[in-house]
Write a protein that binds this DNA or RNA. Structure first.
Lengths: 118, 118
DNA sequence: CAGAATCCATTCGGATACTG
DNA sequence: CAGTATCCGAATGGATTCTG
């Protein structure tokens, strides 16, 4: 890698000085995956949510896809995964603090998107 | 241990009765493509924006990708494309009313995303 | 129940070259 | 300047099968 600038006081070569929304990679890339944004908001809405509940909410998502999305969001610390040693096994997902903040910021968007689809 | 009281009506056709953010396809699918959300906000920020300005703002987007994204957003009526019969040719993109509303609803998200990347 | 693993079709997006 | 066209590798997500 040629140039990795660790401290970015003011990128001199950035033509987009507004608020530089153009270079966003981490979170935006995560949110650009299928169901990611909806997933955050669904978990936010139905509180601690079990895997099955989430799966049902989407109704047409494959388990592999949902698993991936959950993993990614857990890894990125937007979701918290609590596993209980019970039979049958129970797992609950909930928003972390960051996830909660994210959810709040997604709300206006999804709300609007939902409105215009009906 | 009592279950959380659930007195929701339970619509028969929708397993996700909160606000049904799970079935969103149209807009969310559009926004899930690379640069789409940033693109809306950038155009919102630099007003009527020329193709070159937008391209420069992103600095690492390929012209084919940017073109696709622009086309999609124009087709979906979030962006307006104005072409002037000049030499050299000039094209300006601007937000439509829907695009403007979308931009406002994306703002909190991107703002936050930008903050946590620095 | 809550996934993990594997395989695979499709899609997406970048590079490159070319144009009105 | 503002794209379009083409090719192609990479990534994505679904189906299916299997498991603690």
């Amino acid at each position: 890698m040629a140039e990795t600038v660790d401290d970015r006081p003011e990128p001199p070569d950035s033509p987009c000085d507004i608020d530089c929304y153009c270079r966003l990679d981490g979170l935006m890339e995560l949110l650009s995956r299928r169901y990611a944004m909806q997933l955050i908001c669904v978990v936010g809405a139905i509180g601690p949510a079990r895997y099955g509940e989430i799966e049902d909410a989407f109704d047409d998502v494959s388990s592999s896809t949902l698993s991936s999305r959950l993993d990614e969001l857990v890894d990125a610390d937007y979701l918290d995964r609590e596993q209980y040693a019970e039979i049958p096994p129970r797992v609950e997902y909930d928003l972390t603090d960051d996830g909660d903040e994210l959810c709040r910021r997604l709300q206006p968007l999804l709300e609007w998107a939902a409105d215009r689809e009906r």
